[in-house]
Design a protein around this nucleic acid. Structure first.
Length: 569
RNA sequence: CGGGGCAUGGCGCAGCCUGGUAGCGCAUCUGCUUUGGGAGCAGAGGGUCGCAGGUUCGAAUCCUGCUGCCCCGACCA
């Protein structure tokens, strides 16, 4: 490809809307252009990268025996009514009517459509197992689209759905997909982790997310330093502290703490550590007007865990200030579990504290030296907090580290969540009708591109991993328009490299070298060859890798072999 | 959904407070000179200042409403 025929709409300045590196660089490199909130046009350059991701995914899905098909993006409401999701899905589902006033939605996912297809086509256990996939645009009307294509409303997704006679078979395919996803993200050159996700929620027996590690990631993940344990932060279990609670060491005392509402203020005033304080949160209860959740001052509430507690109403709702006054008789900031007339649930770590500090349920008063059992009844314990860096790993091996990740893939055992309500059955070997078991496996293709940039960029622009690069080699001639001899040599070299199977971008614009260098670096082409009159005289080409690891002169003769060696390294 | 902010040429911004009919940089086009890290000079094109009302002799500027976009929030005990 020649730049004279390929639009490189690079920008020196970054549009104001872009916050994170991938969004900035995709705009500056001219890969995407925004049409409306969460809607992006992929330019010819951007699309080349997207297609590279697709290619790797297709190869690995095919290798795993999955079959590609294509389903409509527009889906009839009746199918969603059958699964029950027409009412459950909420405003993220874009719904509309056709000219006959029949309801449709733009597919955010395709469980209903594939299950309908499967129940029509699959009649016998002999047709199982089978795994269908497609790579297709989805639309989810996100509350807050942001970060460019990272969280767009319309995005490209690879979604796969497998069908099985029994759970064992589903488990085997699930494992196969787990391996396949690992292969895909490894091949794409990404640093990723497979992370345990919400188990037990959608009736399935397992769900694994694949996260690309990046500081800008929207999800926090916890992983063990010594085992392969990894989980979404909100799902990571906080183990109860080991050993018995320390014995009380001092008498309880009510002390004045004027104006000290926040943990930090109380700590500063009383000269204690946050871990020595307990904080009390009032939330709506399932059967009681309020329930008190008690945490150590240095810990944070995990809302998912709290919401799952049997005493707590879902969705989790905090009492507002007036409600707090009505229940506790004082303003927020001075709450404590002692003498509070509502059920109390304490986090394991909070229950392990001795001689602790907490609010006295009276304005400007706190208790110090309080002890469970001695000064107030011991409440039931629960895991209510988010794990923190250094907590023991729930599997007993190593300690937890917390990093941020971008969710690029999610695999799920669906069981019969869709097949049962939609009556997707086959006959087994005994001629009996059996509801099929299902799995589903998604990859955010467009998000993979953004995630790759988050992991691979420098101050000059994108540094593509080779499998993702829109072109392999940037061929940059110096002042070619002024030298017929150079023009001929460049043309010959371009043809040679293309013939050798390289995807070459020849910068044949009559521009100053600096402009071309800057553009090629911004769009992140992994290998650069510079050819000049001077080099021609010496029979040499300048070679530079985009990641800066190699920079040397190569002989024009036999360049192909040298390049192959460099690309393999 | 709540809170904050922004809307001026393709992009980035100034002008607004203190009303007088729009300016800078980048980009684009032309010419000349340049040519190993985002060139210089000269010239050109391109904006009903988000939309709709209102105030005023006069509105990008003041007021009201609307729309769009961006950011933050769902930790406060």
């Amino acid at each position: 490809m020649r730049t004279s025929h390929f639009p490189l709409q690079t920008l020196k300045e970054t549009p104001a809307e872009a916050e994170i590196a991938s969004h900035r660089l995709m705009l500056r490199a001219g890969m995407i252009r925004r049409l409306a909130a969460g809607l992006y046009t992929w330019t010819p350059l951007g699309l080349r990268v997207l297609r590279k991701v697709e290619r790797v995914i297709r190869e690995e899905m095919d290798r795993a025996g999955a079959l590609e098909l294509s389903m409509p993006t527009v889906q009839p409401a009746e199918l969603w009514e059958e699964s029950g999701r027409w009412y459950e899905y909420g405003p993220e589902l874009l719904r509309f009517q056709d000219r006959h006033q029949r309801w449709f939605c733009y597919g955010p996912t395709h469980e209903e459509v594939i299950t309908d297809y499967a129940r029509r086509e699959l009649k016998s256990y002999r047709q199982l197992p089978v795994n269908f996939y497609q790579i297709q645009l989805k639309f989810r009307d996100e509350i807050r689209p942001r970060f460019g294509v990272m969280r767009a409303r319309e995005f490209l997704m690879k979604d796969a759905y497998s069908f099985h006679l029994d759970e064992d078979c589903l488990a085997r395919t699930f494992e196969r997909m787990h391996e396949t996803y690992s292969r895909i993200f490894t091949r794409l050159g990404l640093d990723f982790r497979a992370v345990a996700a919400d188990p037990g929620n959608i009736g399935g027996t397992g769900s694994v997310e694949f996260h690309v590690l990046a500081d800008s990631g929207e999800d926090a993940i916890a992983f063990s330093t010594e085992s392969d344990y990894a989980a979404n932060l909100e799902l990571a279990e906080a183990l109860p502290p080991a050993g018995p609670r320390p014995a009380p060491g001092r008498a309880a005392e009510r002390v004045p703490t004027p104006g000290a509402r926040r943990i930090e203020e109380v700590c500063a005033l009383l000269g204690v550590a946050p871990a020595q304080c307990l904080k009390t949160l009032l939330v709506k209860g399932r059967e009681h007007p309020a329930v008190a959740l008690v945490l150590r001052g240095d810990h944070t509430l995990n809302e998912l865990k709290a919401q799952r507690h049997p005493l707590v109403a879902a969705p989790l709702t905090f009492l507002d200030e007036a409600e707090v006054r009505a229940v506790a008789g004082c303003e927020p900031g001075f709450l404590g579990p002692k003498d509070l007339p509502v059920p109390v649930v304490a986090d394991h770590a909070a229950l392990h504290a001795a001689d602790f500090v907490c609010g006295a349920n009276e304005k400007d008063r706190h208790w110090v030296g309080l002890n469970w059992g001695r000064d107030l009844p011991e409440p039931p314990a629960a895991d209510l907090r988010n794990v923190v860096e250094g907590d023991p790993s729930p599997d007993g091996r190593g300690r937890l580290r917390i990093v941020r990740g971008i969710e690029v893939g999610h695999i799920f055992k669906l069981g019969d969540k869709y097949s049962r309500p939609m009556n997707a059955t086959v006959l087994d070997e005994n001629g009996r009708e059996v509801v099929m078991q299902m799995g589903c496996y998604g990859i955010g293709v467009t998000r993979v591109v953004a995630a790759a940039i988050e992991q691979h960029h420098d101050e000059r622009g994108i540094v593509w991993p080779e499998p993702l690069a829109p072109f392999d080699i940037a061929l940059v001639p110096i002042n070619m328009h002024k030298s017929q001899r150079l023009a001929e040599a460049v043309e010959a070299l371009y043809r040679r490299l293309c013939a050798a199977g390289h995807e070459v971008l020849l910068d044949d614009r009559p521009l100053r070298p600096g402009v071309m260098f800057a553009d090629m670096e911004l769009i992140g082409i992994p290998h650069r060859l510079v050819l000049s009159e001077r080099g021609l005289d010496q029979g040499l080409v300048e070679y530079k890798r985009r990641d800066g690891r190699v920079e040397k002169h190569l002989p024009l003769d036999g360049l192909e072999a040298e390049l192959d060696a460099l690309r393999a390294s």
